[in-house]
């Protein structure tokens, strides 16, 4: 059942990606602060039912590939107070990512 229905992964570790800049209502697991920002795929975590659908008691299938994406803090926050190579790693589902 759920195990077989997964969307193919489009990205691999090291790929540059950009988070889609979109602002729907509803249950979204892509934080506001990271939309429109660019980062690098750290790893593919697997494929999981889409939480945007699970939130409404629907099955969330086919499963969405989920990645850990690494962003440089200085690319995320204006005037970041830290080191230039500090990072933030965030789990982001594939449908929120586009190739950079």
């Amino acid at each position: 059942m759920a195990e077989t229905e997964a969307i193919a992964a489009l990205f691999k570790a090291g790929d540059c990606v950009r988070v889609r800049e979109a602002y729907p209502i509803g249950h979204v697991r892509t934080p506001y602060y990271i939309r429109g920002k660019s980062g690098v795929i750290e790893r593919l975590c697997g494929a999981y039912p889409n939480p945007e659908e699970l939130a409404y008691a629907r099955p969330g299938l086919p499963r969405q590939p989920l990645y850990r994406v690494r962003f440089r803090q200085t690319d995320v926050w204006q005037g970041y107070r830290g080191k230039g190579d500090d990072t933030v790693d965030i789990e982001i589902y594939q449908h929120w990512l586009q190739a950079q």
Binding site: P31, C45, L66, Q73, G82, K83, I90, Y93
Partner: peptide, 15 residues
Amino acid sequence: GDDAVVRVHDSTADM
């Protein structure tokens, strides 16, 4: 210290 990178992990999904 400044010789170390700080890496924040935002636990947003299934990890």
